[in-house]
């Protein structure tokens, strides 16, 4: 049996409370507040206490999907990436890089946001990149 507590950060509001995921055999069973954390000092709000609930939800996407004739099909990563790269490449070819926009997210990490804008500005060649902080 494998049981561990993994320190992390609440995925919800911008307060950034320290949490511990309770992990039993590769499943998160709950959350505890990180007692010695400088932000929340061992306390959480209702969202923080339930910060794990969505992780193992049956509706999570488990594979890339491709829509053909109005219906989604599971496809391999290879196929999904190739299709996406081809379609984006075609559109850039035909209409220029600024015909593509990228919306990044306040839910992904710094490193991922960094790569997302790097991708937009290098691979696509556009500054059309924004996120929902305005909203």
């Amino acid at each position: 049996m494998d049981y561990k507590l993994v320190p992390s950060v609440c995925p919800y509001c911008g307060t950034g409370c320290g949490i511990l995921y309770k992990v039993l055999n590769d499943r998160i069973t709950g959350v505890l507040p990180l007692k010695s954390h400088p932000v929340n000092e061992g306390k959480l709000c209702i969202k923080g206490w339930n910060a794990h609930a969505y992780v193992h939800h049956p509706l999570r996407l488990k594979a890339p999907l491709l829509k053909t004739e109005g219906r989604f099909h599971k496809v391999s990563w290879d196929r999904a990436i190739r299709t996406t790269a081809d379609r984006l490449g075609d559109i850039r070819e035909k209409h220029g890089p600024d015909a593509i926009g990228v919306l990044v997210s306040a839910k992904i990490t710094n490193e991922e946001n960094f790569l997302a804008q790097k991708f937009a500005r290098t691979a696509l060649g556009t500054n059309n990149i924004d996120h929902c902080a305005r909203l």
Binding site: G14, A106, N113, I129, A133
Partner: peptide, 22 residues
């Protein structure tokens, strides 16, 4: 200003905006 979503600050810091780089 209190940020509504957990990494709004980071998304801005990282240049997730049309006018600025990281």
């Amino acid at each position: 200003p209190l940020r509504g979503q957990n990494n709004v600050q980071g998304a801005c810091d990282m240049g997730g905006l049309p006018n600025v780089l990281p």
